[in-house]
Structure formats: structure tokens, C-alpha cells
């Protein structure tokens, strides 16, 4: 019975952790959206900033991956 509750907590925790990935999705969307709107205003300057775009995406996405990792840890390692 006690084990049941622990297991249940693990799964609930893992599910909750995946909500964090939604935050990462919002972040990535915001970055790309702002990049696009800036790029459409000044397309000639956009080409030089793609590196910054990817760095930004990588940073935002890393936190989604962290939450995914937390979910995985709860599911398989705890």
C-alpha cells in the first residue's frame, strides 16, 4: 500500500514535471516570433543574427529538456 502511494507520486510528479516543457515551448515560440517580426522589418540584418537566434532557442529549450529530464528521473531513476 505504501509502495503504491510512492509509485503514484512518482507518476504524478513526472506528469507535473512535463508541464515545464510547455514553458520551454512558449519561450522558443516567443524567441522565434520576435526574431521573425524583427526580421520582416529589417530583412537585410536578419541573416547575421541567425546565430543569436539559435543560441536563444538553445537556452530556452534547455530548460524544457531539464524538466523532461526530471520527469525521466522520477519515472526511471528514483
Amino acid at each position: 500500500m505504501e509502495g503504491d502511494i510512492v509509485e503514484m507520486g512518482k507518476f504524478i510528479g513526472a506528469g507535473l514535471a512535463t508541464i515545464g516543457m510547455g514553458g520551454a515551448a512558449i519561450g522558443v515560440g516567443s524567441i522565434v516570433g520576435n526574431f521573425l517580426s524583427g526580421a520582416l522589418r529589417n530583412p537585410s540584418a536578419a541573416g547575421g543574427q541567425t546565430a543569436m537566434l539559435f543560441i536563444g532557442i538553445a537556452f530556452a529549450e534547455a530548460f524544457g529538456i531539464f524538466s523532461f529530464l526530471v520527469a525521466l528521473l522520477l519515472m526511471f531513476a528514483v
Partner: peptide, 16 residues
């Protein structure tokens, strides 16, 4: 930390 976990996490997540 973020440098390594980003790479491994992305690849792992896709495969999983």
C-alpha cells in the same frame, strides 16, 4: 551543466 544536458537530453528525449 546546461551545455552537456542540452545535448544528451535532446537526443535522449527524441529516442525515448
Amino acid at each position: 551543466v546546461s551545455h552537456s544536458i542540452r545535448l544528451a537530453g535532446n537526443v535522449m528525449a527524441g529516442h525515448a
